[in-house]
Nucleic acid binder design. Structure first.
Lengths: 195, 195
DNA sequence: ATAAAGCGAATGAACATTCATTCATCATAA
DNA sequence: TTATGATGAATGAATGTTCATTCGCTTTAT
């Protein structure tokens, strides 16, 4: 039974992020992660069920802390519009600061398999929920249109941010991602249209 | 040397789309595609370099026809705003009508490997360019804001549409995707904001 | 002394790819 | 017309490699 805790567990998670980012999920051997962590191949199986479980666990760790920290940022905001700006800023900043993490979430985690998909969807759903709550709040505060479909709006908001990050990762991170906070925010709130 | 043409080539492409959609790229064996196409395993290698080449070729075939046909739709539009609506409608309709194709483009093709990535990016770039041209046109026609960053706007537009499709695929296509044309269009053009 | 943690060589299953061979088609020559 | 030969598409069994995973043993901690 996988241990899922302890010092080595976290070392292994970090090594996996680094290795998956460098080599890609399917190309990294479990032995590579073990070497990166400075442990034997078999040790990996004390902490994880199997290779797939490493990817899923890693995402859960990252995503849970992501949502928790984002939540802390949001409670400090006054209204929905401030909150939306905070979401964009937080999302872009975290990944701009952690290129390996960005590569893994944008590219490697999309190697979806039913199992991976199920392991991923729960923590991701929390994030989606958070965005939807902010949109609902905006409607209540009469900042956003009443006829907005919250679910669809969330998809547009998340999709936009996600695509911006993916482009940045694929461009070999050659520019400052956080510079896009304002243009993206503007586009989402005000749209393309001329005032 | 891979042939890349002939009747069997197209049969194989179709079989690959179907098989990748059903089993996922990494889980399908080349033998599965061969069986689906009703040919021997070795025959696949007359038409394709290797397994990866099947995925890349398939995407190129799909994407080239996608862009060509979309282009035909666009020339019939009067202005940029009509064109944007046409892009969304075309993008969503094509995938709504071809669930296997949708699964492959949204999920399986994201199994990015350097090689796959390079094979994919060229035809995709054409689509991006098309979107950017429409945005530029909208700025010229004073329909869209002058201070819009075209590149960023394109990412937001594409990201929004793409996310909407991915959600639909992951939901097992349980609702009518094309019903989202208008809400998505509205969000992109007018944004979230109350008028 | 006992249990837990760690080791890493060995295992074996999975699967992409190869290649010797077959077969149908068609051009050429007798 | 008929035999001969050339071509290359198609076959599918065999190959070889790649790794994830296991397990018997060793070390460390309590």
């Amino acid at each position: 039974m996988a241990k899922r805790s302890g010092e080595k567990y976290h070392v292994l998670i970090d090594s996996a992020v680094k290795t998956f980012a460098r080599t890609g999920y399917h190309r990294t051997r479990v032995a590579d992660i073990a070497r990166e962590a400075g442990v034997a191949d078999g040790t990996v199986y004390i902490y994880f069920e199997n290779k797939e479980d490493i990817l899923v666990s890693l995402f859960q760790e990252l995503m849970i802390s992501f949502v928790d920290n984002l939540y802390c940022e949001l409670v400090q905001c006054q209204n929905a519009t401030e909150k939306l700006a905070a979401i964009i800023k937080y999302h872009l900043s975290i990944l701009a600061d952690n290129p390996d993490r960005a590569r893994v979430t944008q590219i490697e985690l999309r190697q979806i398999d039913q199992v991976i998909n199920e392991g991923i969807s729960k923590p991701l759903l929390k994030y989606f929920q958070l965005i939807e709550e902010v949109i609902e709040e905006g409607k209540m505060q009469r900042l956003y249109r009443q006829n907005l479909n919250t679910r669809t709006a969330r998809k547009v908001v998340f999709g936009a941010i996600d695509e911006v990050v993916t482009c940045w990762v694929l461009s070999s991170k050659s520019y400052d991602l956080t510079a896009l906070c304002e243009p993206v925010y503007d586009l989402l709130v005000r749209g393309l249209q001329e005032v």
